[in-house]
């Protein structure tokens, strides 16, 4: 009886609770970090998180609807005209593209190179939600229920913006290319040199380029397709500054991403081609 009481006292004591909860947290963190064991827990908790996200977004949606209702017809007509012009422009470019694609295909046929087939994409909208994290994340409104997977490439119309980092059931966190813990295999379009681009908080950084390499400010960076995460040839950033490292052994270059990462509204998700997957197997 006495023993039981002391047991009870032990489990009631704050220290015991503290140690137990901290232990659970450590186990969760390790399982989350290493082998995705914590994904079911995350999925369940994410269902509780969805109403909160909706609650934050609701006034913003309301504001947009109100803005649309109040905005004057003249403004709408002007906007419509501008959009039509943009569409014409885009169609013209697309027409030029068709002939280029045909030419490219013929050349590839001659070289017996593999065909690049069009990509499967889907559109997601970015939630305007604050992220006080140290890492740069945006939240999008599609999750594992929509077929997203971790490491999936995310773009917008201007270029690559990042990849899916953390999955919930109905939303996902996308890590941006400018995040300090993100690296992406890239290729310099003009010379074909391949390297890695790391995020440095606001831009992407190319470090450890040999001093003999041909690299200029204004060079366009595209994804190189290495690592099988990002498809080849998506534009990413333009180099804006080049400097030689302190010990004069390497060149460091910084590049500005084409996409405006602080004002994203809609993004495209890319699924890898099934044909390519078959070839890989």
């Amino acid at each position: 009886m006495d023993n039981l009481k002391s047991n009870q006292r032990l489990t009631q004591s704050p220290l015991f609770k503290f140690l137990m909860l901290e232990f659970i947290c450590i186990v969760l963190m390790i399982s989350d970090k290493n082998n995705q064991l914590a994904q079911p827990i995350r999925n369940t908790l994410s269902l509780a998180a969805v109403p909160l996200l909706k609650l934050v977004e609701w006034p913003q949606d309301l504001y947009q609807v109100a803005q649309l209702a109040i905005s004057r017809q003249a403004q709408l007509i002007q906007e419509n005209n501008e959009l039509k012009e943009q569409l014409l422009d885009a169609r013209l470019k697309a027409q030029q593209n068709i002939s280029l694609v045909a030419e490219n295909d013929r050349l590839r046929d001659m070289l017996k190179a593999t065909q690049t087939s069009p990509l499967t994409t889907s559109v997601a909208f970015v939630s305007n939600i604050n992220q006080t994290q140290k890492s740069q994340h945006v939240v999008i409104d599609q999750g594992s229920a929509d077929g997203l997977f971790e490491g999936q490439a995310v773009l917008n119309l201007d270029g690559v913006i990042g990849q899916v980092d953390v999955l919930g059931q109905h939303y996902a966190h996308v890590i941006l290319i400018t995040d300090r813990s993100h690296a992406i295999p890239i290729e310099i379009l003009r010379t074909g040199m391949r390297t890695l681009a790391y995020g440095n908080g606001s831009e992407v950084l190319l470090s450890e380029i040999p001093t003999s390499a041909d690299i200029r400010s204004g060079d366009v960076l595209v994804t190189s397709g290495f690592g099988n995460r990002f498809p080849r040839g998506l534009q990413l950033a333009a180099i804006n500054a080049i400097s030689v490292s302190a010990d004069r052994t390497f060149i460091n270059a910084t590049a500005t991403p084409y996409a405006q990462l602080d004002r994203l509204t809609e993004v495209f998700l890319i699924w890898p081609n099934e044909d390519e997957a078959l070839v890989d197997e």
């Binding site: 901290e22 963190m29 509780a48 994340h137």
Partner: peptide
């Protein structure tokens, strides 16, 4: 704390640990 972790997309248990402490 766990809920905040899920919302912020951080390592599951990070905020949980600091808040319990």
């Amino acid at each position: 704390g766990l809920l905040l972790d899920v919302l912020m997309g951080s390592l599951l248990g990070k905020h949980g640990m600091s808040l319990v402490a």
